[in-house]
Design a protein around this nucleic acid. Structure first.
Lengths: 210, 210
DNA sequence: GCCATTTTTTGACACTCGTCAAGCGAATCG
DNA sequence: CGATTCGCTTGACGAGTGTCAAAAAATGGC
């Protein structure tokens, strides 16, 4: 009877609004300080609430962090769909994808470094593992959607698995993020160049080969 | 004089031995708990010393962490040189390299996850940035040495920059480490397969092309 | 064997953390 | 209008942290 914990559709819109608002504040603070040094007090202080309210909407700190990860996941889920839909040529899609990856670092570097922080934490804390896994698979899907669209525009097929494609791109992305945060100005254009060079390599040289 | 284990001939052999011993204990504890939850007391407890001794040999916690990073760096520096030296065929080198990367995860997963943890932390804490940068460039050099040897055995040349090669491989490695720690049994052989597929792609199709 | 120096232990300090209980204003409802 | 929940604030508790000073032990030269 008590619609307390998870009343998604109609139940308590207020409750979920607050959770989202807290998650946004938390993402800001976490992105600035990192997982290790972002306390609940600091998170609440950067919001319009006091520090006790967190335990009213979240069971504990990890519950909040996991919620933040899922919120971040929902942000990334369809971030590149417009690129795919509006693509006219393979080379154009490749360029746009490379550019937007770089833009994403320029605009949201803090959120991205938080993501890598949380993923590292998930190697030590089991409760985080599941949430991180979900984000990873979502991002893998995003990359895969771009890549298959790119392949189709080329009239060729993809030569690697979704996981491999994501792993390769993620490695370059993380490297670029690190360099960008270290103040290397050419980090972003280098990333774009790397991606433009990588994408063609991920396709089979001819349509009928295995 | 005292023929200690250390390669440091003069200066203060005792002092540096203790620093190394503490760094090894710290690496064990840090690899188990992560940067955020590994306290100096816990680190000292896993060593043969008490918790106060850390501040006798290190200025503060960050000083110890940085020293650990450099110690880790020295461990990795020539880890794959024997592969390069003993390689007879390109395909053999490729296979050996892929296998050893997988073995490295199987045997030293804790140290590797600590490395990714520290690298993430370096995006938030400036004092770590420099040390992480050094390790990154060292690993880049290790990868590059293998790759150029592989190219030479093929009679071809490398098509990517050292940075790109390292970024790509690191992405796959990190992904495999994450999957391995999550209990996916096929993570390591998948990594080996990915690497065997990637290396040939990093070479120019023909010797004289640009 | 004694003294000076180095090395190690111990205990404490100031601080921050997550968590929770108690209280309070406002809204809801019978 | 009074009672009762809800939303949120406040203040406190205990545990844990990095750091350091003082004591204690070990070391080495004379």
């Amino acid at each position: 009877m008590s619609p307390s914990v998870a009343p998604e559709p109609e139940g308590m819109p207020r409750h979920d609004d607050r959770r989202r608002a807290l998650a946004e504040s938390a993402l800001r603070t976490l992105g600035e300080l990192g997982y290790a040094r972002a306390s609940l007090r600091e998170i609440a202080q950067n919001s319009e609430f006091s520090h006790g309210v967190v335990h009213y909407y979240f069971r504990d700190k990890l519950d909040l962090i996991v919620y933040c990860a899922q919120y971040y996941e929902s942000m990334c889920a369809d971030r590149y769909d417009d690129l795919v839909d509006g693509a006219t040529s393979a080379e154009g899609l490749c360029d746009d994808f490379a550019s937007r990856l770089a833009e994403s670092i320029a605009q949201d570097a803090s959120v991205h470094r938080l993501w890598y922080d949380l993923r590292s934490q998930s190697m030590f804390e089991d409760p985080l593992r599941e949430a991180v896994y979900g984000v990873d698979r979502t991002l893998e899907g995003v990359v895969w959607r771009v890549l298959t669209a790119y392949a189709e525009l080329q009239g060729r097929s993809v030569a690697v698995t979704p996981r491999t494609a994501y792993g390769l791109l993620d490695g370059l992305f993380q490297q670029a993020l690190l360099a960008h945060l270290a103040g290397q100005d050419d980090a972003l254009e280098r990333l774009a160049r790397q991606v433009r060079g990588l994408l063609p390599q991920l396709l089979l040289v001819d349509q009928d080969e295995g």
